[in-house]
Write a protein that binds this DNA or RNA. Structure first.
Lengths: 222, 222
DNA sequence: TGGAATAATAAGGTAAACCATAATTTAATT
DNA sequence: AATTAAATTATGGTTTACCTTATTATTCCA
């Protein structure tokens, strides 16, 4: 299938695209922002990935992963999340830092190692952030969940996953106990994109709207 | 200490130098050969590493690691060999392939991860190839051993370590059961740099002289 | 001491993935 | 329809680590 191994940079782009796309096209600008590069750089990269058949680019509309690209992205995400499990469960690395360390390792992992690791870990279904781990063939589907930002005041939900990846965001969430498995109740939603106040583990925590979008929940009580 | 992380390429050069140097200077040509680059490229790299204070280069004589370079190399080798342990003991990766996979991982391993891994593994002293694992501070000393190539016919020795790294060499050694811990007896040494014939695990095996230099033993019976 | 082999340097080139700046094109909104 | 914002393309530049070919310097050995 894949003749050449993908470059680290390529893998990062694919992963970002998979994490970003519900199913509609992705604005190249948003992608650039997420990866911390200029729109010009992201555009150049989209051309390259287009030539490799990994992404479909409709100028002025946006980009999308092709079947091949989606599969490659799934593989990268699989590796990443398996390493997250290992680092968290076995090496006892701090929850908030697991992502960044796994991100380094993911690009240096041969397929044989990935599958042996999955075996070693007992084929986990989710990473410590609660996100599902793609199958060995690269297939995956997005988590069926609601962003915390869409909760109505008074509703209670089970925290399913944190899709954030930025170290400072993860650090904040860890400190405030906003972790998968916990129960959250939305107490108040300030107007004008204001912060949400949620109750979690007996404590009240304020969350900005953008951060609340990274927190995925399943409503259990209205 | 180390402000910037070293590049992957830099790490490979340092590691190769540490593995190559008994204690005397290393000919740049030999280094180039080992790394599979041209002498010109290796020379350029030596200039760069010299500027960073990692190697001392005496033109027309050879290169040597500085204290700083040796420490950095020790760190790289430590990471590498810890991963070898993990891949072999826990992931059950084939002995001959452990080195190459660990080599990929070593460049993507943060110090926190290295130390947690060491802890997880129970602070092993040697890698599956029998080579000692440097300390957390990067210090290490070469194994006190004799190359198999220096044995006299009739002598028996305990196999301590395999310093080879090339995949095909490791594969051959694995197939012939030339592994750390085994007992070997040198049966015959053909003249003119000819092959050695050794008895190991009840079988007779022929080894070229260059390969025998990669096999380190401790003589136990003359 | 004179070559041969080895080492070093010089000069110019490649590829990937960035960058900035500026110009152009398209889309979206009023 | 005109304006503005966003996306794209064009140019030219940077860094790292390679490469080739050619030239010069040194060391070693006979």
């Amino acid at each position: 299938m894949n003749l050449k191994p993908l470059s680290e940079s390529t893998e990062m782009y694919l992963k970002a695209m998979a994490e970003l796309s519900g199913r509609d096209v992705i604005a190249v600008g948003r992608l650039a922002e997420r990866l911390g590069v200029t729109p010009v750089s992201a555009n150049e990269m989209m051309r390259r990935l287009g030539e490799q058949g990994l992404v479909a680019h409709t100028p002025y509309k946006g980009v999308n992963l092709t079947k091949k690209g989606r599969e490659a992205a799934g593989n990268v995400i699989r590796r990443q999340r398996l390493w997250e499990c290992f680092l968290y469960d076995h090496l006892k690395i701090e929850w908030a830092r697991v992502y960044e360390f796994a991100c380094l390792l993911e690009h240096a992992t041969a397929p044989e190692v990935t599958e042996s690791l999955a075996e070693f870990l007992g084929h986990p279904k989710t990473c410590p952030r609660g996100n599902p781990i793609p199958e060995a063939d690269g297939s995956f589907k997005p988590l069926d969940a609601t962003p915390l930002s869409e909760l109505k005041p008074g509703q209670t939900a089970r925290l399913l996953a944190v899709s954030a990846t930025a170290a400072d965001v993860l650090k904040y969430l860890q400190e405030k106990n906003i972790l998968p498995g916990r129960e959250v109740t939305l107490l108040e939603l300030a107007p004008l994109q204001g912060p949400l106040t949620v109750r979690i583990e007996e404590k009240d925590v304020a969350l900005g709207l953008p951060m609340a979008e990274f927190v995925l929940v399943k409503i259990i009580k209205s």
